[in-house]
């Protein structure tokens, strides 16, 4: 692995690291709220990946002005705008669900919920 690759891909790798942090929180944590936070981090990091793709070194934001300028790619921006909105939509539904789960089970910890459900199944 040469230095050039390291320099030119460093951004990607940090983003991937962040993604994995979010993903890890999402799948390893038992607290439902924390899971949603993890999901948020995961998604935000994916957004960064896209935006990173769209960047052109020494480019400017894709708002047209006079003169010869290099613009960064607007398409990833559009995609991510959409994705951000989708993300917040998912988050709100997830949180609403968590609230209802708290009301129904008295807890938002996965372990305890599993215990309660196992209890129902054994008792029924």
């Amino acid at each position: 692995m040469n230095i050039g690759l390291l320099v030119s891909h460093y951004n990607y790798w940090v983003v991937i690291f962040l993604m994995m942090v979010g993903f890890y929180i999402l799948i390893s944590r038992g607290n439902l709220i924390k899971k949603v936070i993890g999901l948020n981090v995961f998604q935000t990091s994916v957004f960064m990946l896209y935006i990173t793709l769209g960047k052109i070194t020494a480019g400017t934001p894709p708002i047209l002005t006079e003169g010869e300028v290099v613009y960064s790619n607007p398409l990833p921006h559009v995609l991510i705008l959409t994705a951000i909105v989708v993300g917040i939509a998912t988050t709100s539904v997830a949180l609403a669900l968590a609230i209802r789960i708290k009301e129904a089970y008295g807890t938002v910890e996965e372990d305890e919920i599993n215990r309660i459900e196992a209890g129902i199944e054994a008792g029924g």
Binding site: L32, K35, V93, A94, L97, A98, I101, Y105, E117
Partner: peptide, 8 residues
């Protein structure tokens, strides 16, 4: 809870 799991 199943909806939440599905969501995740």
């Amino acid at each position: 809870t199943s909806a939440f799991r599905y969501l995740v």
